[in-house]
Design a protein around this nucleic acid. Sequence first.
DNA 1: GAGTGGTCTAGACCACTGT
DNA 2: CAGTGGTCTAGACCACTCC
Lengths: 264, 264
Amino acid sequence: MAAKYGRIADDMRRKIETGTFVAGEKLPAETELTALYRVSLNTLRRAMDLLEAEGRLERRQGIGNFVRAPRPPIRRSPDRYQWEKDRVLQPEAERMKTGATEYDTGLTIDALEFPAVYDTIEAPPDLADVFGVDAGSRLLRRTYRTRMRGADSPLQLIRSYLVYDVVAENPALVDSSREPWPGGTQHQLYTIGIELDRIVDHITARPPQGDEAEDLRMLPGVALIVIRKVSYDTTDRVVELSDVLMPGDRTELEYTTKLRRWPA
Amino acid sequence: MAAKYGRIADDMRRKIETGTFVAGEKLPAETELTALYRVSLNTLRRAMDLLEAEGRLERRQGIGNFVRAPRPPIRRSPDRYQWEKDRVLQPEAERMKTGATEYDTGLTIDALEFPAVYDTIEAPPDLADVFGVDAGSRLLRRTYRTRMRGADSPLQLIRSYLVYDVVAENPALVDSSREPWPGGTQHQLYTIGIELDRIVDHITARPPQGDEAEDLRMLPGVALIVIRKVSYDTTDRVVELSDVLMPGDRTELEYTTKLRRWPA
DNA sequence: GAGTGGTCTAGACCACTGT
DNA sequence: CAGTGGTCTAGACCACTCC
């Protein structure tokens, strides 16, 4: 890395690691740093771009640049899917107690907001293909932003899709005022006679688009982890599809594969 | 996005999608584009930074900027783990036939290179913790770069760690000239009496560091998907840990969770 | 050598925040 | 208002590729 901005980033990275710049503290102003490193503002800011993308730096316009305290990652594992399914058959009082996000975070239901937005869209080709319906068919789209109440660290943005004509059989399912629904999506499907057989997670990573960075309060340059979660019922039909978006620097997914024993 | 560079990126994105700029083709030179958009070079290049991070643009110094043809993602699923385990007990002739990378790609063994590098390191705290050994203990580190021969599209960079004193029981296991080993790591462990019970994948996304972007021929700004794969043997001991690094814009991971049926 | 992208500078002005 | 980060410009020079 012969470029100046790379060397400055290396130096600042070292200063953060050795404690010269303390986590949570404000860095010297950019004009001071240009004097320290004897570079132009432009070059200095390119160095900060790198640190920001690495999640080590947080920039706040009008205030200053801050060393970012490492945040413990939110863990997510597919164990939740079985847990959600088991919960469906429990009495409502039990189902009320906790939602799936608490399962990840250990937080209680009171600590979370669930601002759910329902609307309908015409199925774009990729979704129509997965659901096995014609492109343009009506889909119910539900958008959830789940975050810790009070904290400024949102967890995830979820876009859930259902085939409208299938779920409208129970009018309560297309009514967003019924959120949060005790027992979640699997219980909602249960009310129209659907039992899930398996869930397939397709995981990719990409830069945030449009408002996503804003919605998730992500720093620019941080990657988004996207889980496209496809739920199949016991007749092998795709009944729900969710895109779960999470900031890559605060999320760890965990999947366990149990292996069969060799014959003795 | 009131900023000029954002509007320019929007415009160029549209031109790529509508075919004004054709995939694989060279864009007008940057100096021409500055004239077209009436902005400074600096601003234009910030717009191109965005497109590059989105994987839509490829920059080649001294040649030009190119619209990047979308590449089909490489799929990876944990089905391979059971497949690898089943293969261990097969005769060598059978094990020779294919490796795990072909399992992902459908390519034959002839189409792949496996330049393996072996060395030993002192266990850093995080690895020592996972293996349950003292920090500073000797680990065997094996580095693999697997890529399609001839093509310039590498697939993944793998760093595999084993406890040196455990695997040195079979001297062949610490000798890189024995690569590629028919039957892979699970067969290597089999030679010292180890059978795997389960494998846990920890998935995160982060920007590439150091030489990683270069090694994987990644465009700057593209996120790296990292799988930390931890293998447990039948006595619940961690016997191997691999970090598998893949370019986020060319990789899709797939995990299926089978759910138990409700009682009838 | 001509043409391309990569880096860097000095200076200007704007937008946001807190006093 | 002063201080901070965010954007933009015009111009210079360097590094790489191809002829």
